[in-house]
Design a protein around this nucleic acid. Structure first.
Lengths: 201, 201
DNA sequence: TTGACAAGTGACCTGTCGTTCGCTATAATG
DNA sequence: CATTATAGCGAACGACAGGTCACTTGTCAA
């Protein structure tokens, strides 16, 4: 049962840190949300900062498990429409999954205070996405779906606007639907622009 | 007397809030940086939150003065190379101007805690940029520089990646030069992709 | 000269924070 | 059965936060 509480504390810490920030969160409220008193926390963590470090450790592990190995990378689509479909699937998950949202918010608001958060932010918000889509666009060029071009540049040009819309959803969740349809519009605009000649029509 | 104490407090608040966040900043340190003791602050502001509100007020005024009226909008470039030049000029300012950097950081880390910060973040990071470049791209299409396309979509596709690189600079200032050359590369890639037919070389 | 006022000071108040400690209940271990 | 470890509790501590207040100083108008 001990490990259970420890995990529950981390879950609640992610929730409160991502809403109110590390400094804006206090142990009493955090533990009260779990039906505990604050002193009980110290049976599982040495300090508030210890919770923070454990939380970042967990995030790093999760990210490595999901995106670390080449096996977990999404397959290269066989059609241009397949790219749109894959994009919308990923966007839907990333915009609506509570845990992912809170992780993104946490990295956003703590990136200037903590070194590891800063590095994770760059990976989550930029390099991770461009790396993934560089690989995908290389594959689609080889399949003759996209015109020959710098795949890294295309990956950046594709993922940055989508990432911006995802951040917009974090900020204004009531615009979810609007943002999702904007992502689809952008994705279609993109494939129209970069489709190989024999694909156009 | 160049600047009165009230303004100096706001300047220092912007500096410390943008580094440590609102909750992570305390009045004693803030006023000590100005050679005052904390109680002196209360001659100029009612409370810590009052400083925060005044700071946001000032930011809103500044933004309205700079980008509010149509007169202050940048002119539509006469050549494709002119677009690159204008982009690089704006990027250089926005990446190196301390006040702008701190404003951006502040909005980034406080956007989930304060309603007005949230709205300003969306304006600074998205709608303000797309509005401006929608107008510019419309003009460039009318001049026959860019191919006919949805100017708003182009503005979004252009500004979002540049904005992402600017945020990267806030996070990792040591990569300034790298990011700036990436912005130029992206800008040239963009004009190559969207140039009107009779402009291509 | 004097009175009013703005601006700065240091002592102090109150509340809250993170943290510690001694205690208890439970359950597993020998 | 006695022992020991675990995980919870409540009271208390020291540090520090934001904020108040009586007081001083300097400026300037009447």
């Amino acid at each position: 049962m001990a490990k259970d509480t420890k995990e529950r504390i981390l879950d609640e810490a992610l929730r409160q840190f991502s809403q109110k920030g590390y400094d804006g969160t206090n142990i009493r409220e955090l533990t009260a949300s779990l039906g505990l008193v604050k002193s009980s926390m110290y049976k599982h963590f040495d300090s508030k900062e210890d919770i923070w470090n454990a939380l970042l450790d967990r995030m790093i592990v999760y990210y490595a498990e999901r995106f670390g190995s080449a096996e977990n990378l999404p397959p290269v689509p066989d059609t241009l429409e397949g790219l749109v479909a894959m994009t919308m699937k990923m966007a839907d998950v990333t915009i609506h999954d509570e845990m992912i949202i809170m992780t993104r918010k946490l990295l956003t608001i703590e990136q200037f205070r903590d070194e590891r958060a800063r590095k994770l932010a760059t990976k989550h918000f930029m390099t991770g996405l461009t790396d993934m889509f560089t690989h995908i666009f290389e594959g689609m060029m080889n399949k003759g779906l996209l015109r020959r071009d710098d795949p890294e540049m295309l990956a950046f040009a594709y993922t940055a606007p989508i990432s911006a819309l995802i951040h917009l959803c974090d900020r204004e969740p009531e615009k979810d639907n609007n943002a999702i349809s904007q992502i689809e519009s952008f994705s279609r605009h993109f494939i129209k622009t970069y489709a190989a000649q024999d694909q156009e029509g």
